[in-house]
Design a binder for these strands. Structure first.
Length: 644
RNA sequence: GGGCCCGUUGCCUAGCCCGGAUUAAGGCGCCGGCCUUCGGAGCCGGAGAACCAGGGUUCAAAUCCCUGCGGGCCCGCCA
């Protein structure tokens, strides 16, 4: 029987030992579940308990005295992995692991399980949909949005490794107003054929069209206003300066579009007609909008596959609408007490659902907080984004028991309303298994990205720049390589650096984008970890032998102890990342492993170590490290190269 | 007005959910070392310095609770 999670075996032994000793020495007291923590220093062992501080109150003893009695009561000989137990400090109980056995218990399974090491299976494997990216097909994917696919992809990989069946879905939002705007501009220009990446052209047309329309609308509003117009005037000035900017950057397109749009008496109503037509399935609108969106999606697929991020399903929002499911859901909602008419529109009373089903605490809300209601249907009969998201969520639940939506945290409210709508419809299980995986925005220094203003850095640009910088590094560091080799290396180094920068930070924290931050090649970066992996591979390659007779008792330095402990904890770290949906935990872990590995590498010889038993033990250690590097990087969607 | 999230050194980040032991841990930057030894995208050493503030709970608080302050986001017939 090989150990799937070596450190957990030791932990389990310590827990049992402690529990038994407590029961034996203090049968009269009640105690909570055993907890163990990592001691701050090796002299305190590998695991420690501070339970005596709390429990000593029940017996009116000094914590230290209690700890002494318990430590003495533990029969170490019953537990193969526990070398010794002692009381320490004011009342700690410290457990020391039997190092030589523990090394064997860690290194052998790691090497035997190889590509599976660390990937502990979930107790109950489930079918899970991870919906991510879902960038609107109206402009190129920009760096702010790129945090989404990188996180979503890592999440999907982690859950899959945890034994779940994972489906990665991209939701193509083609029904909203923004699609009608781009379609309108695209048609006005005579459906131009893109010469470069189609999503870039679409982005320019969208920005110009929406800017011109915004200026139109504001001018009209100012004309018709009966009161104060200074606020509107300010907005108008703002948009006029955006317009100037666009005119300078894209003079031809801008002039053409302006002339064409100005011919329309009321561009706004043309766009509204398109929205209505598309939603109700009019052939002409269908053809036009699908064409623009397809064109843009072609560009997206290019970008995403370059980033090595792939999907199992591309879901068109319009298909949800045309299937009739939106109408069906609305009809059903109308029969509940939670839908009501308000001056020609249909509203959803999210707060009433939360109250009736007593969900506020569960949703993390104060009892007196009133959840805003949600508009389901406009006065003209068309639906809104969140409305359509209700049947779409049910689609996703058709193939999965759990749905994770990777969506920016600015959508927290609408995601909550969506969940409440599922409750209102009686889909309790689905509502409970719907998770909003929220992440914070990526900002440019000084201002927020705005796709409507054409103010963004595209993911394509970031990848180009990343690879370009990586190429310069490769040329500096490995001038002897062939140019083809240099390009291959700079590709995975650049992309890795970018992904790592986006996945390594707690998603709840905002990221300010700077090139230096994203394209880091030093410590605490993907290239640093890739390099460590390549170094490990290099040693194994040069050793030209298998570690056939490792003598683990010869691994006696603190560096070796640290490394093995880290390798042994990988399965536990993985489980935490998978169960609490924290890809950044993996990034943090593997970076720490690289630190330890490089220190070890620098301080101790492996191949030439004497005697052979020691050399073999260190080789096994390096091999296990190589495996953990690779398996960790795989979870993050970052390549683990054998040379670089 | 209400809600959610964030606040750790000159800058960036980990630790917070689940409170524990010495000196709060790393990276960037700064200073000084290390290539006749398995790959210097590395290693070793040094200087420096921080848990937003104030209360509370506790034997013990960066971590839990309360009140403020600062920043971001949301509260739309946008997505």
């Amino acid at each position: 029987m090989i150990s799937v999670s070596p450190f957990k075996e030791f932990r389990d032994e310590c827990e049992t030992a402690l529990r038994d000793a407590l029961k034996k020495m203090y049968p009269q007291i009640s105690f909570p579940p055993i907890t163990l923590e990592y001691p701050p220093s090796p002299e305190f062992g590998e695991l420690a308990s501070s339970m005596c501080f709390e429990l000593a109150k029940q017996t009116a003893e000094k914590p230290r005295k209690m700890a002494d009695k318990i430590a003495k009561a533990i029969e170490v000989s019953r537990f193969p992995l526990i070398r010794s137990v002692e009381a320490a400090g004011g009342g700690y109980i410290n457990f020391h692991v039997n190092l030589a056995d523990f090394f064997r218990l860690t290194l052998e399974p790691a090497r035997a399980l190889d590509t599976e090491y660390g990937y502990v299976r979930a107790d109950e494997p489930r079918k899970i949909v991870v919906e991510h990216t879902s960038v609107n097909p109206i402009h190129p994917i920009h760096i702010g949005q790129a945090r989404n696919p990188v996180l979503g992809d890592a999440l999907a990989r982690i859950l899959k490794a945890h034994g779940h069946t994972v489906f990665r879905h991209y939701y193509i939002d083609d029904v909203g107003r923004q699609s009608a705007v781009i379609a309108y501009g695209y048609e006005k220009l005579g459906k131009p054929k893109p010469e470069e990446k189609p999503d870039h052209l679409i982005g320019v047309i969208y920005t110009i069209t929406s800017c011109i329309m915004e200026v139109h609308r504001l001018k009209r509003e100012i004309e018709q206003a009966t009161e104060e117009t200074s606020e509107l005037q300010k907005q108008l000035d703002d948009w006029m300066s955006v317009a100037d900017n666009l005119k300078n950057k894209f003079p031809e397109l801008f002039t053409q579009l302006l002339a064409k749009i100005n011919k329309d008496e009321n561009p706004e109503s043309k766009v509204n007609n398109l929205i209505r037509g598309y939603e109700s399935g009019e052939e002409k609108a269908k053809q036009l909008i699908r064409e623009v969106c397809q064109l843009c999606m072609k560009g997206f697929k290019e970008t995403l596959s370059r980033a090595e991020i792939f999907y199992d399903s591309w879901d068109w929002e319009s298909d949800v609408v045309w299937s009739g499911d939106v109408v069906q859901v609305l009809d059903k909602l109308k029969t509940t007490p939670y839908a009501f008419q308000l001056g020609g529109i249909l509203e959803f009373d999210a707060d009433k659902v939360a109250k009736d089903l007593n969900l506020k605490q569960q949703l993390g809300l104060m009892e007196d907080y009133e959840v805003p209601s949600l508009t389901l249907v406009r006065a003209d009969g068309t639906t809104l984004y969140t409305t359509r998201d209700i049947p779409y969520s049910l689609w996703k639940f058709r193939e999965a028991e759990r749905v994770i939506n990777v969506i920016g945290m600015e959508q927290t409210l609408s995601q909550m309303q969506l969940k409440l709508a599922l409750y209102a419809l009686g889909y309790l299980e689905q509502a409970e298994n719907l998770t909003h995986f929220a992440y914070n925005l990526v900002r440019l220094p000084g201002y927020r990205m705005s796709s409507r203003r054409g103010r963004y850095i595209t993911l394509d640009e970031v990848m180009d720049e990343a690879v370009k910088r990586a190429y310069e590094e490769v040329c500096k560091r490995s001038p002897h390589l062939s140019d083809e080799e240099k390009h291959r290396i700079s590709n995975f180094v650049g992309l890795g650096a970018m992904k790592y920068a986006l996945v390594a930070v707690d998603p709840a924290k905002p990221v300010v984008f700077t090139w230096d931050r994203v394209l880091d090649f030093e410590k605490n970066s993907a290239p640093y970890i890739q390099y460590s992996h390549a170094r490990a591979c290099s040693i194994l390659r040069k050793a030209c032998r298998e570690p056939e007779e490792p003598d683990y008792s010869l691994l006696t330095t603190p560096l070796e102890r640290d490394m093995v402990l880290t390798l042994a904890r990988f399965p536990e770290v993985f489980v935490e990342a998978a169960e609490s949906l924290k890809p950044n935990v993996v990034a943090d872990f593997v970076n720490g492993l690289a630190d330890k590995f490089n220190t070890f590498y620098n301080a101790l010889p492996v191949i030439r170590a004497e005697p052979l038993g020691l050399s073999d033990a260190r080789l096994a250690l390096v091999d296990a490290a190589r495996i953990v590097f690779r398996n960790s990087l795989n979870l993050l969607g970052i390549e683990a190269p054998e040379r670089m």
